[in-house]
């Protein structure tokens, strides 16, 4: 059994509980043991990197050290923003000896810099493998038309992330195909949803997320698949507001890829926490997949 350190980040303990629930269930099924990092702290997200460069590196490093102390060699971070910040911190410290010294001074001890940072998609595709996932599928997605939306932080900057294509990523699409769904080609896979502006510059989120919903609908999507709690929240929680502004109904469920994977592996909607979504996915899923 593969054992990894788990960094849930703040969102998975609050706005994105269903991502946490579905990810843990899927891991159990796929034989991955998650060990939550004890006393992990917030990665600092955008507020840190737009306020202090050193802070934006020190906070993720603190978590990397905590994970290293667990004696594990991989840490997995499902939030694309946390994943991004952990990867960047690790790389910058490795490349910049002055920064490394400063981080050490702030944290009181150095990070060995050996631990690998991964996103769950990477673990599932690279470590478990789609072939195995396909074999374990108990419920095919029956041609469910899915627009996979990757957003910014899961694929950029490519020099640090080193996973998938920064302009036309495929990993979630490949997962959808392996599960028997229809992965739609569309142009907005990596357009920005407005990210952390949800509360501060909400109009920008209405505009950018509105364009994404619109493109997905035009491409024929029945739902949008995401791998980041910020993207999910902007597209789901703000969808009603967007509909009102644009005078157009979308009614597009915004699902985490772990939820769709969980359904395909035979879990129920209730188990996966799907009732927590604002745009209710149950009608679509009952009709298409005959799940409850």
């Amino acid at each position: 059994m593969m054992k990894v350190a788990y960094y849930p980040g703040c969102s998975l303990h609050s706005t994105a509980r269903e991502y946490d629930i579905s990810f843990q269930l899927v891991c159990r099924k796929l034989g991955i043991e998650l060990q939550e990092i004890p006393h992990w702290v917030c990665c600092g997200s955008s507020p840190a990197h737009v306020t202090s460069h050193l802070l934006s590196i020190a906070l993720p490093c603190k978590n990397l050290i905590l994970a290293e102390e667990m004696g594990l060699d991989t840490v997995v971070a499902p939030c694309a923003a946390c994943f991004n910040r952990l990867k960047i911190a690790k790389q910058e410290v490795a490349e910049d000896s002055k920064l490394k010294k400063e981080v050490q001074e702030v944290l009181g001890k150095p990070s060995a810099g050996k631990i690998e940072v991964k996103h769950p998609l990477q673990v599932i595709i690279e470590d478990v493998g789609l072939k195995k996932v396909e074999e374990m599928t108990r419920r095919k997605l029956q041609g469910l038309r899915v627009a996979s939306y990757y957003g910014c932080l899961l694929v950029r900057p490519p020099s640090v992330i080193n996973f998938d294509d920064p302009e036309d990523p495929q990993s979630m699409d490949n997962l959808v195909s392996a599960l028997g769904g229809e992965a739609l080609p569309w142009a907005f896979k990596t357009e920005c949803c407005g990210a952390s502006f949800s509360l501060s510059e909400t109009d920008i989120v209405f505009e950018l997320s509105g364009e994404i919903l619109n493109e997905a609908l035009e491409a024929g999507a029945e739902c949008i698949l995401v791998a980041c709690p910020l993207c999910q929240s902007n597209l789901d929680l703000r969808q009603k507001g967007i509909e009102k502004r644009r005078g157009k109904k979308f009614n597009l469920p915004i699902l985490y890829f772990t939820e769709l994977l969980g359904l395909a592996l035979g879990m129920s909607m209730r188990q996966l926490g799907l009732s927590r979504h604002i745009v209710n996915p149950s009608k679509l899923l009952e009709r298409k997949l005959a799940v409850t």
Partner: peptide, 11 residues
Amino acid sequence: WICASCQTCSV
């Protein structure tokens, strides 16, 4: 102040 840090420009 309203740059969303999406990094499209950087890529």
